[in-house]
């Protein structure tokens, strides 16, 4: 680990980190997901192997337009998965981000104080 210095290198802003992270998530859900393995997952495989797979029932939401990560009415498979992935990612972002913003502490923490102290004074 490098020795601590009094002039830290320019750090990546929280906004930049979140934007880059979100772009990565959207690419994973929207593009890379098409190439995911279509083999049954561990549980499904075990259920088939040991003989309880038939006890699975269809989900009541099986008629959802995005059921099984495909978009109803979109013929192109790549696009169909991609749309479902991108929309799902955005819905999760809004719900979880909104929940976190609603729950967060608004009183300044010691961290916020030091962050503010580092910022130049605004008129």
């Amino acid at each position: 680990m490098s020795a601590p210095t009094t002039t830290p290198r320019r750090r990546v802003s929280t906004r930049a980190l979140v934007v880059v992270g979100l772009v990565v998530a959207l690419l994973v859900a929207g593009v890379a997901s098409y190439y995911a393995s279509s083999h049954p997952d561990g549980l499904e495989h075990v259920a088939g192997e040991t003989g309880f797979l038939d006890s699975a029932e269809d989900s009541p939401t099986a008629d959802s337009p995005f059921a099984d990560y495909t978009t109803e009415g979109v013929e192109d498979e790549r696009l169909s998965v991609g749309i479902a992935g991108v929309l799902g990612t955005l819905v999760v972002l809004v719900l979880a981000g909104g929940l976190a913003l609603a729950l967060r502490r608004r009183t300044p923490t010691p961290d916020d104080d030091t962050a503010r102290a580092r910022e130049p004074e605004r008129a």
């Binding site: 929280t14 906004r15 979140v18 992270g21 979100l22 990565v24 998530a25 959207l26 994973v28 859900a29 997901s33 992935g85 799902g88 990612t89 955005l90 999760v92 972002l93 809004v94 719900l95 979880a96 981000g97 909104g98 929940l99 976190a100 913003l101 729950l103 967060r104 502490r105 608004r106 923490t109 961290d111 916020d112 962050a115």
Partner: peptide, 19 residues
């Protein structure tokens, strides 16, 4: 959760969904 970490929570959830 505070002002700095709340956006991270949204990002983490979105990333987990994608992954």
């Amino acid at each position: 959760l505070d002002d700095r970490t709340a956006p991270m929570a949204g990002l983490v959830a979105a990333f987990v969904f994608a992954a």
